[in-house]
Design a protein around this nucleic acid. Structure first.
Length: 550
RNA sequence: GGCCCGGUGGUCAAGCGGCUAAGACACCGCCCUUUCACGGCGGUAACGGCAGUUCGAUUCUGCUCCGGGUCACCA
């Protein structure tokens, strides 16, 4: 058969040759150890939390080595395309500080190896596909979906492996006339790879994460170009990563089974195989039984969930790093103030096994991250979040940012900062007591004390209260109040003989706290009083007295 | 079902032939303390199973079990 003739017949509009492409996309001028990596999502809408792992890995690999990090859009499946997904994707990764050097951006392509959207690269793929035909390594297949279904059923019936291969590969050895006949009829066709692989033939492959992997040679004649002329993932992967100069392919381990095919394809095309990192997937406990399960399209798996909850990007980043390299936490403890980019990220430290997403851990990491932020930053980030998710809070903060900053400054700084906040959605509850509009008494008066005693304590407090007192003088007065109503002012004495008193200064403090903050637990009361101001603190105590008096 | 990957406490994990088997989160207790939070101290809790190699296996090999992935004109 004249393969040149066949190639022209199949793809008559392609006049370019692989050489043209090689010339258009020359090798990159980079230092020998610089890594070129890429993230290649398909625009299907949701951005999965799990995608932050390979994303960070490839980003670190590139930027730690002085290489290039590319964003490529794999939109070869028009059925799955979701409007606005690309924009959303770019925005989301930007939020999480994933910075691409090259590829698709909000304002068009950046870089010399574009276009970076696969649907715009059809001519390139077909150029190589045509060459494959000329070399006898690819052939058209006119099977319909029904035929393929029937084939699979027949295979199942006789216990054969499902797939297009061997005797089942109906068009693999078709002669020119029959191909021409179908073409003349206008029958749609896909282009298939002509595999010479032998499943009995095992090959060892070294994956940077999984280590030594033993695979069987691929013997399936997989589809290279779909009937609309668009490539499958496999073809696009080979061509794009070759032309873009990708040195390291970071992807989920679900791709491991297709690796033999990719190796074959790269070889057939004369491309050098990149290094691979097949990283394990993030898992999740499933709702009913607590079995392990791949996180799919449930609430927590979408990155947007974390934005809604108000986890700072830095927290998520920090958590992702701890998952990626287990020695990261140790490093962080030793270097609390360095940016994570200073951490010597190592592929060798990556675990080959999958892990479960742990919300408790994220929460803890986030509390620590936030506790180390300045009050000003906390204020700014909370406001940023609240603008989208909590207008009331946003209004309160933006009305007086200095006031809000003073609230966030409580217990901040120093060696043992408070860790009250894990996510911005928790802020409102934390700060509500500082705003009259949001303030409300949430905890009841304790039943074990007589209302008259509580009232007496508050009255005594108000009588002696002097806003100008320093914190020691202030608390001394609280103690004096305790003494005056038969409560112990000395905790040691109280503990030694609780029966001798009605209560202790701790209880008196609690009455005050209830009156001023509306709850039993709060940060330092003296600080709170000096943030909400003399008048307001007096009002609240007075209101409590009134309430108790009735 | 075939093929592939994985398997140390509840979770994430150190370990790389000899250890009382780290650490972090979570949980529990104690201390600090006017509450909470922070911090400090301590505690519960693990090598899936069976063979083999070896003087010795969590570490190496085989089998098995369990978990996951994959078998598309989806990526």
């Amino acid at each position: 058969m004249d393969l040149n003739l066949l190639a022209d017949l199949l793809y008559p509009d392609i006049h370019t040759l692989p050489e043209d492409m090689e010339k258009r996309y020359p090798p990159r001028d980079l230092p020998a150890d610089a890594k070129v990596t890429r993230f290649a999502p398909s625009p299907t809408g949701m951005v999965h939390f799990g995608s932050l792992l390979p994303t960070r890995v490839s980003e670190r690999l590139a930027h730690q080595s002085g290489g290039v990090y590319i964003l490529r859009i794999e939109d070869t499946d028009s059925k799955r395309y979701v409007e606005g997904a690309v924009e959303n994707l770019i925005k989301t990764y930007k939020y999480f500080h994933i910075d691409f050097d090259e590829g698709v951006t909000e304002s068009g392509d950046k870089g010399n190896y574009g276009p970076y959207t696969q649907s715009q690269r059809v001519e390139i793929y077909q150029t190589y596909a045509k060459e494959l035909i000329r070399a006898g390594k690819a052939y058209p297949c006119f099977c319909t979906a029904e035929e393929l279904d029937a084939m699979r059923q027949a295979q199942e019936a006789e216990g054969a492996d499902p797939g297009y291969y061997g005797k089942w590969a109906k068009w693999r050895d078709a002669d020119f006339e029959s191909i021409k006949a179908e073409l003349d009829k206008g029958t749609p066709f896909v282009l298939r790879f002509r595999s010479e692989g032998d499943p009995e033939h095992k090959i060892k492959f070294s994956d940077l994460v999984k280590g030594e992997v033993t695979v069987s040679e691929n013997y399936m004649d997989h589809v290279l170009l779909k009937s609309d002329g668009i490539p499958t993932y496999h073809m696009a992967h080979a061509v794009d990563d070759h032309l873009m100069g990708t040195t390291h392919v970071v992807r989920g381990e679900e791709w491991l089974p297709s690796l033999p095919f990719h190796m074959q394809l790269f070889k057939a095309l004369g491309f050098r195989l990149p290094k691979y990192l097949h990283i394990s997937q993030l898992m999740k406990l499933d709702e009913n039984g607590n079995k392990k399960k791949l996180s799919k399209r449930d609430n927590e798996s979408g990155v947007s969930y974390f934005r809604e909850k108000g986890f700072p990007a830095a927290s998520v980043e920090e958590y992702v790093m701890t998952l990626l390299n287990s020695n990261y936490e140790e490093w962080r403890t030793a270097n609390p103030d360095l940016p994570y980019t200073d951490f010597p990220f190592s592929v060798k430290k990556m675990s080959p096994s999958g892990c479960l997403f742990d919300m408790d851990k994220l929460t803890d990491v986030s509390k620590t991250v936030i506790s180390r932020m300045t009050a000003g930053d906390v204020c700014a980030e909370t406001l940023e979040w609240a603008k989208d998710y909590d207008p009331e809070l946003a209004g309160a903060i933006s009305a007086d940012k200095d006031y809000a900053t003073r609230i966030f400054a409580i217990g901040r700084g120093g060696k043992k900062p408070r860790k009250d906040i894990a996510m911005w959605s928790e802020v409102k509850d934390y700060v509500s007591l500082f705003y009259d509009g949001m303030f409300r008494k949430t905890d009841p008066w304790p039943e074990k004390f007589a209302a008259s005693d509580i009232r007496a304590a508050l009255v005594g407090y108000l009588d002696s209260f002097d806003y100008a007192d320093d914190s020691k003088a202030w608390f001394d007065k609280v103690k004096a109040v305790a003494d005056s109503i038969g409560f112990a002012s000395d905790m040691k004495a109280y503990k030694a003989d609780p029966g001798a008193y009605k209560g202790s200064v701790a209880d008196v403090s609690m009455f005050l706290r209830l009156a001023i903050t509306g709850r039993q637990n709060s940060p330092d009361m003296y600080e709170i009083i000096h943030i909400i101001g003399e008048e307001r603190s007096r009002e609240r105590v007075a209101a409590a007295i009134k309430e108790l008096g009735e």
